[in-house]
């Protein structure tokens, strides 16, 4: 789960009940194809759940983070912070 954009998807999704595909695309500045691939990988790993529906006649895809996804994000963030702290300590 080290990929920058996948971490971004999980970070945004963890902040809300669910996030729309278009919002993720514009926030992360990704193409639809790229974002789809990242979401598919995360979904396969059980880190996000994807829900497809309609808002009126408009098809919408919603992404929500799962409990394992939330836990994986917490682990990843902790590891990243530890790395930064170690890097800062080694420079000092």
């Amino acid at each position: 789960m080290h990929q920058r954009h996948r971490l971004g998807i999980l970070t945004v999704a963890a902040e809300a009940k669910r996030v729309e595909f278009g919002y993720l695309r514009s926030t992360l500045e990704l193409t639809a194809g790229n974002l789809s691939r990242h979401i598919a990988v995360l979904e396969q790993a059980g880190l996000v759940a994807v829900e497809k529906g309609y808002d009126g006649k408009r098809p919408r895809t919603w992404v929500s983070v799962t409990e394992p996804g939330r836990a994986a994000l917490a682990v990843e963030m902790k590891a990243l912070r530890a790395l930064v702290e170690r890097h800062v300590a080694s420079e000092a």
Binding site: R4, L7, G8, T11, V12, E15, A16, V19, T27, L28, M77, L80, R81, V84
Partner: peptide
């Protein structure tokens, strides 16, 4: 990366 993620979080909120 940590800064970018914090910015994403802030924007989402």
């Amino acid at each position: 990366l940590l800064g970018d993620l914090a910015e994403l979080r802030r924007r989402a909120r």
